[in-house]
Amino acid sequence: TRVETATETAWISLVTALHLVLGLSAVLGLLLLRWQFPAHYRRLRHALW
């Protein structure tokens, strides 16, 4: 049971790290898009909202 718990903890930390990385890359990508294509971003936002 001790090994299982350790594996579970490792998986949880791995998944958390993955989610953090994905979230950060998504935010960075959005910022980059907004910085590179302001007109396109505004049009996209206008279409979405």
Rank of each mutant, 00 (worst) to 15 (best):
L33D: 01
L31M: 14
I12V: 12
H40M: 14
H19V: 03
L48N: 08
T16F: 08
L14Q: 02
A47H: 10
T1A: 12
R34H: 03
A39D: 15
T5A: 00
A10V: 06
R45E: 00
V15G: 02
V21Y: 03
W35C: 14
A6G: 12
L48Q: 00
A26T: 11
A39L: 12
H46M: 06
R45L: 09
R42I: 08
P38K: 13
H46D: 06
E8C: 05
A17I: 10
L22K: 01
G29N: 03
V27R: 03
R45T: 11
L48H: 08
L20R: 02
A26M: 11
A17N: 01
T16C: 09
L24E: 05
I12P: 03
H19Q: 03
L32F: 02
R43D: 08
V3C: 01
W35I: 15
Y41Q: 03
T7Y: 13
Q36I: 15
V3N: 01
T9R: 12
L30R: 03
L32A: 13
S13A: 15
L28E: 02
H19E: 05
G29P: 07
P38E: 11
L44D: 06
A47L: 08
T9H: 09
R43A: 14
W35E: 15
V21I: 10
A17C: 10
F37G: 02
Q36E: 15
T9S: 11
A17F: 08
S25F: 05
L18R: 03
V27L: 11
G23Q: 04
R42K: 12
S25D: 06
G29T: 15
T7I: 11
I12C: 03
S25A: 14
L22Q: 04
V15M: 08
Q36Y: 15
H46G: 09
H19I: 01
Y41A: 15
R45F: 10
L33I: 09
Q36H: 15
L22C: 14
R42L: 12
L28G: 00
E8Y: 05
R34G: 06
R2E: 12
R42V: 11
V27G: 11
T1H: 12
I12S: 05
G29C: 14
E8Q: 04
E4D: 10
L28R: 04
L18W: 13
Y41H: 09
W35P: 15
T1M: 13
V21R: 04
T1N: 07
A39M: 12
L14C: 03
G29I: 12
A17D: 03
L28W: 07
A47S: 09
T1R: 10
A47T: 09
T16D: 00
S25I: 05
V3R: 01
L44C: 09
W35K: 15
A6S: 14
L31R: 06
A6T: 10
V27N: 03
S13R: 09
L48T: 02
L22D: 04
R34K: 15
I12A: 08
L24M: 13
H40W: 08
T5C: 00
V15N: 04
T7K: 13
T16N: 05
A47N: 07
R43G: 08
W35Y: 15
A17G: 05
R34Q: 05
A26I: 10
I12E: 05
L20C: 11
E4V: 13
G29W: 05
R42D: 09
W11P: 06
H46V: 00
A39G: 14
F37Y: 15
P38D: 15
A6M: 12
L32I: 07
A10R: 11
